[in-house]
Computed example of a mutant assay.
Amino acid sequence: MTTTLSNSILSATINHKGAELISLQSLKTKKEYIWEGDPYFWGKHSPVLFPIVGTLKNNSYQYKDKIYFLSRHGFARDFDFNIVSQEKNKVVFSLQNTLETFNIYPFQFELQLIYTLKKTELIVTYKVINNSSETMPFSIGGHPAFALKGKFENYTLQFESGEKLISYGLENDLLSDKTQCIQLKNEQLPLTYSLFEKDALVFKSLQSKQIQILENNNPILNFKFDNFPNLGIWTKLNAPFICLEPWLGYADTINANGNILEKEGVKLLESNSDTAYTFSVEIV
Protein backbone atom coordinates (compact mmCIF):
# COMPACT_ATOMS: atom_id res chain seq x y z
CA MET A 1 0.00 0.00 0.00
CA THR A 2 1.22 3.50 -0.76
CA THR A 3 0.25 7.07 0.11
CA THR A 4 0.89 10.10 -2.09
CA LEU A 5 1.25 13.72 -1.01
CA SER A 6 1.10 16.58 -3.47
CA ASN A 7 1.11 20.32 -3.81
CA SER A 8 1.24 22.51 -6.91
CA ILE A 9 4.94 21.69 -7.47
CA LEU A 10 5.81 18.21 -6.18
CA SER A 11 4.37 14.82 -5.44
CA ALA A 12 5.83 12.34 -2.95
CA THR A 13 4.83 8.70 -2.68
CA ILE A 14 5.53 6.62 0.43
CA ASN A 15 5.27 2.85 0.76
CA HIS A 16 3.61 1.79 4.01
CA LYS A 17 6.21 -0.99 4.33
CA GLY A 18 9.05 0.71 6.14
CA ALA A 19 7.30 4.06 5.58
CA GLU A 20 9.78 4.29 2.70
CA LEU A 21 9.85 7.19 0.26
CA ILE A 22 9.68 5.63 -3.20
CA SER A 23 9.04 8.66 -5.40
CA LEU A 24 9.63 12.41 -5.42
CA GLN A 25 8.53 13.94 -8.67
CA SER A 26 8.21 17.38 -10.23
CA LEU A 27 4.64 17.81 -11.43
CA LYS A 28 5.73 20.27 -14.10
CA THR A 29 8.60 18.35 -15.69
CA LYS A 30 7.66 14.81 -14.52
CA LYS A 31 11.28 14.39 -13.47
CA GLU A 32 11.82 11.65 -10.88
CA TYR A 33 14.39 12.38 -8.19
CA ILE A 34 14.32 9.08 -6.26
CA TRP A 35 16.07 5.93 -7.49
CA GLU A 36 13.65 3.46 -9.05
CA GLY A 37 14.82 0.49 -6.97
CA ASP A 38 16.01 -1.84 -9.74
CA PRO A 39 17.17 -4.94 -7.81
CA TYR A 40 19.96 -5.53 -10.34
CA PHE A 41 21.81 -2.76 -8.51
CA TRP A 42 19.88 -2.19 -5.28
CA GLY A 43 16.24 -2.97 -4.68
CA LYS A 44 15.42 -0.14 -2.28
CA HIS A 45 14.69 3.58 -2.56
CA SER A 46 15.02 5.31 0.81
CA PRO A 47 14.83 2.90 3.76
CA VAL A 48 14.83 4.08 7.37
CA LEU A 49 17.61 2.62 9.51
CA PHE A 50 16.46 1.84 13.06
CA PRO A 51 17.29 0.94 15.82
CA ILE A 52 20.84 0.60 14.50
CA VAL A 53 22.77 2.07 11.61
CA GLY A 54 25.16 -0.24 9.80
CA THR A 55 26.38 -3.58 11.09
CA LEU A 56 26.91 -4.85 14.63
CA LYS A 57 29.98 -6.91 15.44
CA ASN A 58 28.85 -10.55 15.11
CA ASN A 59 25.41 -9.10 14.28
CA SER A 60 24.70 -8.99 17.99
CA TYR A 61 24.75 -6.78 21.05
CA GLN A 62 24.63 -7.23 24.81
CA TYR A 63 22.07 -5.65 27.11
CA LYS A 64 21.63 -6.60 30.79
CA ASP A 65 23.77 -9.72 30.41
CA LYS A 66 21.68 -11.02 27.53
CA ILE A 67 22.72 -11.33 23.89
CA TYR A 68 20.39 -10.03 21.19
CA PHE A 69 20.76 -10.38 17.44
CA LEU A 70 20.06 -7.58 14.97
CA SER A 71 20.77 -7.62 11.26
CA ARG A 72 22.37 -4.75 9.35
CA HIS A 73 20.48 -1.44 9.63
CA GLY A 74 17.89 -2.87 12.01
CA PHE A 75 14.28 -3.92 11.44
CA ALA A 76 12.11 -0.83 10.87
CA ARG A 77 12.41 -1.03 7.08
CA ASP A 78 10.87 -4.53 7.15
CA PHE A 79 7.63 -3.69 8.99
CA ASP A 80 4.40 -2.08 7.87
CA PHE A 81 3.76 1.33 9.45
CA ASN A 82 0.32 2.68 10.31
CA ILE A 83 -0.90 6.15 9.40
CA VAL A 84 -1.83 8.14 12.51
CA SER A 85 -2.70 11.41 10.73
CA GLN A 86 -2.85 12.69 7.18
CA GLU A 87 -3.40 15.96 5.37
CA LYS A 88 -2.94 16.91 1.72
CA ASN A 89 0.69 17.96 2.27
CA LYS A 90 1.60 15.96 5.38
CA VAL A 91 1.40 12.39 6.66
CA VAL A 92 2.52 10.78 9.92
CA PHE A 93 3.44 7.09 9.94
CA SER A 94 3.93 5.09 13.13
CA LEU A 95 5.64 1.85 14.12
CA GLN A 96 5.32 0.53 17.67
CA ASN A 97 7.01 -2.32 19.46
CA THR A 98 5.55 -5.79 19.19
CA LEU A 99 6.42 -9.16 20.70
CA GLU A 100 8.49 -9.82 17.58
CA THR A 101 10.53 -6.62 17.98
CA PHE A 102 10.82 -7.09 21.75
CA ASN A 103 12.66 -10.36 21.21
CA ILE A 104 15.43 -8.57 19.34
CA TYR A 105 15.13 -5.06 20.85
CA PRO A 106 13.73 -5.19 24.40
CA PHE A 107 12.25 -1.70 24.61
CA GLN A 108 8.83 -0.12 24.36
CA PHE A 109 9.09 2.45 21.60
CA GLU A 110 7.24 4.32 18.93
CA LEU A 111 8.94 5.44 15.73
CA GLN A 112 7.15 8.11 13.72
CA LEU A 113 8.08 9.10 10.18
CA ILE A 114 6.64 12.47 9.27
CA TYR A 115 6.62 13.59 5.64
CA THR A 116 5.75 17.21 4.83
CA LEU A 117 5.65 18.94 1.44
CA LYS A 118 6.39 22.65 1.60
CA LYS A 119 6.60 24.37 -1.77
CA THR A 120 9.69 22.89 -3.50
CA GLU A 121 10.85 20.93 -0.45
CA LEU A 122 10.10 17.55 1.09
CA ILE A 123 10.82 17.53 4.83
CA VAL A 124 11.38 14.16 6.50
CA THR A 125 11.30 13.92 10.29
CA TYR A 126 12.13 10.86 12.37
CA LYS A 127 10.56 11.05 15.83
CA VAL A 128 11.72 8.45 18.34
CA ILE A 129 9.61 7.94 21.47
CA ASN A 130 10.82 5.92 24.44
CA ASN A 131 7.82 4.47 26.27
CA SER A 132 10.03 2.27 28.44
CA SER A 133 10.74 2.81 32.11
CA GLU A 134 14.46 2.70 31.37
CA THR A 135 16.94 4.46 29.13
CA MET A 136 16.71 3.28 25.53
CA PRO A 137 19.79 3.06 23.29
CA PHE A 138 19.21 3.62 19.60
CA SER A 139 20.60 4.89 16.34
CA ILE A 140 18.62 6.11 13.37
CA GLY A 141 19.39 7.15 9.83
CA GLY A 142 18.10 7.89 6.38
CA HIS A 143 19.23 6.17 3.19
CA PRO A 144 17.69 8.12 0.29
CA ALA A 145 19.00 7.19 -3.15
CA PHE A 146 18.83 9.95 -5.76
CA ALA A 147 18.47 9.03 -9.41
CA LEU A 148 21.32 10.19 -11.66
CA LYS A 149 20.47 9.99 -15.33
CA GLY A 150 23.26 9.90 -17.89
CA LYS A 151 26.97 9.71 -17.13
CA PHE A 152 27.81 9.37 -13.44
CA GLU A 153 30.90 11.55 -13.82
CA ASN A 154 28.72 14.47 -14.93
CA TYR A 155 27.63 14.88 -11.30
CA THR A 156 29.27 16.74 -8.44
CA LEU A 157 28.50 17.15 -4.76
CA GLN A 158 28.72 20.77 -3.61
CA PHE A 159 29.38 20.98 0.13
CA GLU A 160 28.32 23.91 2.25
CA SER A 161 31.82 24.27 3.68
CA GLY A 162 35.23 23.92 2.07
CA GLU A 163 36.34 21.40 4.65
CA LYS A 164 38.76 18.48 4.61
CA LEU A 165 36.67 15.30 4.64
CA ILE A 166 37.86 12.40 6.80
CA SER A 167 36.26 9.12 5.74
CA TYR A 168 36.53 6.00 7.91
CA GLY A 169 37.17 2.71 6.16
CA LEU A 170 35.08 -0.44 6.52
CA GLU A 171 36.43 -3.92 7.26
CA ASN A 172 33.84 -6.68 6.92
CA ASP A 173 31.17 -3.97 7.28
CA LEU A 174 32.68 -2.72 10.56
CA LEU A 175 34.32 0.66 11.03
CA SER A 176 38.11 0.51 11.11
CA ASP A 177 40.72 2.96 12.35
CA LYS A 178 41.91 3.49 8.79
CA THR A 179 40.93 6.82 7.31
CA GLN A 180 41.30 8.65 4.03
CA CYS A 181 41.39 12.38 3.58
CA ILE A 182 39.31 13.81 0.77
CA GLN A 183 40.21 17.35 -0.11
CA LEU A 184 37.43 19.37 -1.67
CA LYS A 185 38.17 21.83 -4.43
CA ASN A 186 35.93 24.89 -4.36
CA GLU A 187 33.76 22.97 -1.86
CA GLN A 188 33.08 20.33 -4.53
CA LEU A 189 33.49 16.56 -4.74
CA PRO A 190 33.28 15.25 -8.34
CA LEU A 191 31.58 11.85 -8.39
CA THR A 192 33.49 8.83 -9.68
CA TYR A 193 32.84 5.17 -9.02
CA SER A 194 36.42 4.79 -7.80
CA LEU A 195 35.43 6.73 -4.67
CA PHE A 196 33.30 3.76 -3.63
CA GLU A 197 35.61 0.86 -4.50
CA LYS A 198 35.80 -0.02 -0.79
CA ASP A 199 32.11 0.59 -0.04
CA ALA A 200 30.60 3.73 1.46
CA LEU A 201 32.28 6.92 2.52
CA VAL A 202 31.64 7.28 6.25
CA PHE A 203 32.01 10.63 7.99
CA LYS A 204 31.81 10.80 11.78
CA SER A 205 31.64 14.58 11.67
CA LEU A 206 31.07 17.30 9.09
CA GLN A 207 30.99 21.07 9.18
CA SER A 208 28.58 21.09 6.24
CA LYS A 209 24.90 20.56 6.96
CA GLN A 210 23.84 20.91 3.33
CA ILE A 211 24.99 19.20 0.14
CA GLN A 212 23.88 20.20 -3.34
CA ILE A 213 23.84 17.77 -6.25
CA LEU A 214 25.05 19.36 -9.49
CA GLU A 215 24.80 17.99 -13.02
CA ASN A 216 27.33 19.58 -15.36
CA ASN A 217 27.65 22.35 -12.74
CA ASN A 218 23.90 22.96 -12.76
CA PRO A 219 22.11 22.52 -9.39
CA ILE A 220 19.50 19.76 -9.20
CA LEU A 221 18.62 19.57 -5.52
CA ASN A 222 19.67 20.67 -2.06
CA PHE A 223 19.98 18.03 0.64
CA LYS A 224 19.85 19.39 4.20
CA PHE A 225 20.55 17.41 7.38
CA ASP A 226 20.83 19.99 10.15
CA ASN A 227 20.77 17.86 13.30
CA PHE A 228 22.27 14.60 12.06
CA PRO A 229 25.89 14.41 13.27
CA ASN A 230 27.11 11.70 10.88
CA LEU A 231 26.85 11.05 7.15
CA GLY A 232 27.36 8.23 4.69
CA ILE A 233 27.68 8.54 0.92
CA TRP A 234 27.31 5.40 -1.19
CA THR A 235 26.63 3.88 -4.55
CA LYS A 236 27.41 0.64 -6.38
CA LEU A 237 29.61 0.16 -9.44
CA ASN A 238 27.84 1.46 -12.57
CA ALA A 239 24.64 2.17 -10.63
CA PRO A 240 22.79 5.36 -11.70
CA PHE A 241 22.18 6.72 -8.21
CA ILE A 242 23.91 8.31 -5.24
CA CYS A 243 22.85 7.79 -1.63
CA LEU A 244 23.22 10.69 0.80
CA GLU A 245 22.68 9.13 4.21
CA PRO A 246 22.19 11.29 7.31
CA TRP A 247 22.92 9.23 10.41
CA LEU A 248 22.76 9.33 14.15
CA GLY A 249 25.31 6.61 14.81
CA TYR A 250 27.14 4.20 12.53
CA ALA A 251 28.41 0.62 12.30
CA ASP A 252 30.26 -0.99 15.17
CA THR A 253 33.99 -0.42 15.23
CA ILE A 254 36.24 -3.42 14.83
CA ASN A 255 37.12 -3.07 18.53
CA ALA A 256 33.52 -2.83 19.81
CA ASN A 257 32.87 -4.69 23.08
CA GLY A 258 29.24 -5.49 22.22
CA ASN A 259 27.66 -3.53 25.09
CA ILE A 260 24.91 -1.52 23.38
CA LEU A 261 25.02 1.17 26.08
CA GLU A 262 28.70 1.77 25.29
CA LYS A 263 28.41 1.56 21.50
CA GLU A 264 30.24 4.38 19.74
CA GLY A 265 27.76 6.88 18.27
CA VAL A 266 24.70 5.46 20.04
CA LYS A 267 22.04 7.79 21.46
CA LEU A 268 20.70 7.12 24.97
CA LEU A 269 17.11 8.33 25.23
CA GLU A 270 15.71 8.81 28.73
CA SER A 271 12.54 6.95 29.74
CA ASN A 272 9.20 8.47 28.72
CA SER A 273 10.81 11.05 26.46
CA ASP A 274 11.23 11.65 22.75
CA THR A 275 13.62 13.19 20.26
CA ALA A 276 13.46 14.09 16.57
CA TYR A 277 15.83 14.35 13.62
CA THR A 278 15.09 15.97 10.27
CA PHE A 279 16.47 16.04 6.77
CA SER A 280 14.99 17.58 3.66
CA VAL A 281 15.19 17.51 -0.12
CA GLU A 282 14.70 20.81 -1.91
CA ILE A 283 14.24 20.73 -5.66
CA VAL A 284 16.11 23.52 -7.44
Rank of each mutant, 00 (worst) to 15 (best):
11 S>R: 10
13 T>V: 02
14 I>C: 01
15 N>Y: 06
15 N>A: 15
16 H>L: 10
17 K>W: 00
24 L>S: 00
32 E>V: 05
33 Y>I: 01
37 G>A: 11
37 G>H: 10
38 D>H: 05
41 F>W: 13
55 T>H: 11
57 K>F: 03
58 N>E: 11
62 Q>E: 09
63 Y>L: 15
65 D>P: 05
65 D>M: 11
67 I>L: 10
67 I>H: 02
69 F>G: 07
71 S>T: 13
72 R>N: 11
73 H>V: 02
74 G>C: 12
78 D>K: 14
84 V>W: 01
85 S>F: 01
91 V>G: 00
94 S>H: 03
94 S>C: 11
104 I>T: 14
104 I>M: 15
110 E>Y: 03
120 T>Q: 14
121 E>F: 07
121 E>P: 06
131 N>Q: 14
143 H>M: 09
144 P>S: 03
146 F>M: 08
149 K>W: 04
152 F>M: 14
152 F>D: 11
154 N>R: 08
162 G>A: 14
168 Y>F: 15
169 G>W: 08
170 L>S: 15
171 E>L: 05
179 T>M: 11
182 I>R: 00
182 I>L: 15
191 L>D: 10
191 L>V: 09
192 T>N: 09
196 F>R: 03
197 E>Y: 01
201 L>M: 14
202 V>E: 02
205 S>C: 00
209 K>G: 08
209 K>W: 08
214 L>W: 13
215 E>W: 00
216 N>T: 10
217 N>Q: 15
222 N>M: 10
222 N>G: 09
227 N>I: 08
227 N>L: 06
228 F>A: 08
231 L>I: 12
233 I>W: 04
236 K>E: 15
239 A>K: 11
239 A>V: 09
241 F>K: 09
243 C>A: 15
246 P>I: 04
246 P>C: 03
247 W>R: 11
247 W>N: 12
247 W>K: 11
250 Y>G: 04
250 Y>K: 04
252 D>A: 03
254 I>A: 02
258 G>N: 09
258 G>Y: 07
259 N>H: 10
260 I>H: 07
260 I>E: 09
262 E>M: 00
262 E>I: 00
263 K>P: 05
272 N>S: 04
275 T>M: 09
282 E>S: 12
